[in-house]
Structures are given as C-alpha cells and as structure tokens.
Design a binder for these strands. Structure first.
Length: 273
DNA sequence: CAACCGCCCTGGGAGC
DNA sequence: TGCTCCCAGGGCGGTT
C-alpha cells in the first residue's frame, strides 16, 4: 500500500508533469471511493483551469487551481499513472483527468479505500480531513522530543501511538514496525513509559527510514509511476515487517508477530525492549 | 479526551 | 480445478 514515501514520490513526479497544465475534461467510473465523488463539483474546480500548485500533507495529495482544490488519497491500493491515452485501459480506473496536451492522469484503485474530492477553502490545508493532522515527520525538527511530549499521558502501546495520524502523519504499519526495530523499542511498550533519549532515537529512526525509502522510490520513480516498477518500501530490505519466524538481521533470533488493535506487528524479541 | 471496534473494499493465498 | 474463507490495512465514525 502507498505509504508516505510512495505518496511523496508520486507527488514529485506529478509536479514535474502537471504543474501549469490545464485540465480539459474528467472521466469518472461512477463507483464510490471512500466516499461518493461529486463529479460536477470536481469539474467546476478543475475543468478549464490550470494546476497552480501541487502539495502533499500526510498521505494526501492536493491539486490547486484558482477555483479551489482537489484532495486525493491513494488508500490501500491506489495508484496514479500518467498516460497518453484518455481512455480507461486498466481495471479499476475510477478517475481520469485529461489535459490539453497528450497527458492524462489516471487514478486506479481496486479496493476503493482512496479518495478524490473537490473543495473550496482559502487555505487548502483547512479541509476537515487535513486540519487536525499531526506533524510531518520530515519537517518536524526534534521529532523525538515532540513525540515524547505528546506521549506523556498516553497508555496506549507505542506502535498504536505512532500510527495515530493526529500525532504524526505518514507512519503506517510497515514503517512503524521498521522504525521501532531500528530504535530498539518493543511495539507493545506503553507510550508514556519510554524515556526521552529513546524517543530521540525513534524520531531519527523514523526520519531515516522515510528518507531512505523516498530515495529508493526516487531512483525508480519513472518505473513506479508507469506502474511497472517498485519504489519505496519495495526497493529496500525490510528488517521485521512480514518476517515472522525468520531470523533477525542483527542477532539471528526469530522474529515474532503479534496483533495490536486488529493490526499485525512484527518485532525482534531480543533487540526490542 | 483516550482507547478501541467495526466498517469500507478486492485480490491473493491457504486449505479443502 | 475450483470453491470458500481469511487476511491485508488507513482512516473515519461511533461507542464506551
């Protein structure tokens, strides 16, 4: 599933290709995504307008025109491909934005957990789904200090805490597991029972993991967006995620799997405390 | 407010 | 081979 590095990689690619382009027409499959899509509203905001800004907030991509904004989320299984054809060529193509040139933006999402939604606000970050989001891990200086401070009243497990988008965005199941391994912290440990120094190590681990994945995604960005390649976490070696029973890359102990609020977590019982 | 649960959805893999 | 069942998971809305 697309995590922050994949969304960042996609956004950078789109920026290079769509900024300043005028949207001519929009196709919509008619299937509800996370919520129903208001095609008339989307056309009103985008058609006949040129894309004046592209940005990312958490795992959301925001396209702006002089008329308003379009919020895009890739959900679990979403992809954005730029194609020459304005026809839906792949199964589960739900939205196509056609430009005046021979570039069409294809939004493809088999599981339809994603979102495409037009809205009008003065500041694009004021959308209700965006305005209560936590910090950007790559922009926040002293991420560890911030996390420690937010954790003081939280009894919940650190893994669950890290995945709370009201605290910090862009840390999904894979990167939460990988960051905790790198920081040597057990995923079940209560958030408030971790010392500041360990949070500082965790903050650096999160930033390292995300940056490395963006870099890996960037090296294969062309392939990733054309849908043939594998960017982000596909391109890097995972230490714990999905590795139950396999041996730890640091100490050779078998990796364990546990369920936390319905989600799987993987960790090394010897390296993580 | 904190914590958790159920739900949205389809593809892929396991088991029979 | 084909069927059924379960799992993957972000994020939201509702409940305790």
């Amino acid at each position: 599933m697309p995590e922050l590095p994949e969304v960042e990689t996609t956004m950078r690619f789109l920026k290079g290709r769509l900024l300043g382009q005028e949207i001519a027409d929009i196709y919509y499959s008619g299937h509800s995504l996370r919520r129903p899509l208001d095609l008339a509203q989307l056309k009103k905001i985008l058609c006949g307008q040129s894309i004046s800004k592209l940005q990312r907030r958490g795992k959301y991509i925001i396209l702006s025109t002089s008329q308003g904004h379009a919020l895009i989320h890739l959900g679990m299984s979403g992809r954005i491909l730029l194609k020459q054809s304005a026809q839906a060529e792949e199964a589960h193509t739900h939205v196509i934005l056609t430009t005046r040139k021979d570039t069409s933006f294809h939004y493809i999402d088999p599981r339809r957990f994603g979102l495409v939604e037009a809205y009008i606000t003065r500041d694009p970050l004021h959308h209700p789904l965006l305005r209560n989001l936590g910090v950007e891990p790559l922009s926040q200086a002293n991420l560890g200090d911030y996390l420690w401070q937010k954790a003081q009243k939280r009894n919940t497990a650190i893994k669950t805490f890290l995945m709370d988008a009201k605290i910090v965005v862009g840390v999904g199941n894979i990167y939460a597991a990988e960051s905790l391994f790198r920081a040597g912290i057990h995923p079940l440990r209560p958030a408030r029972k971790i010392a500041l120094r360990r949070y500082q190590r965790l903050g650096e681990a999160i930033r390292f993991i995300l940056k490395r994945s963006i870099k890996a995604g960037g090296t294969s960005i062309k392939d990733f967006v054309s849908g043939e390649g594998r960017g982000g976490y596909y391109a890097i070696k995972l230490d714990v995620y999905g590795r139950e029973g396999e041996s730890c890359h640091k100490c050779n102990a078998p990796i364990k799997q546990v369920k936390q609020t319905g989600r799987s977590s993987w960790y090394c019982p010897r390296c993580q405390r």
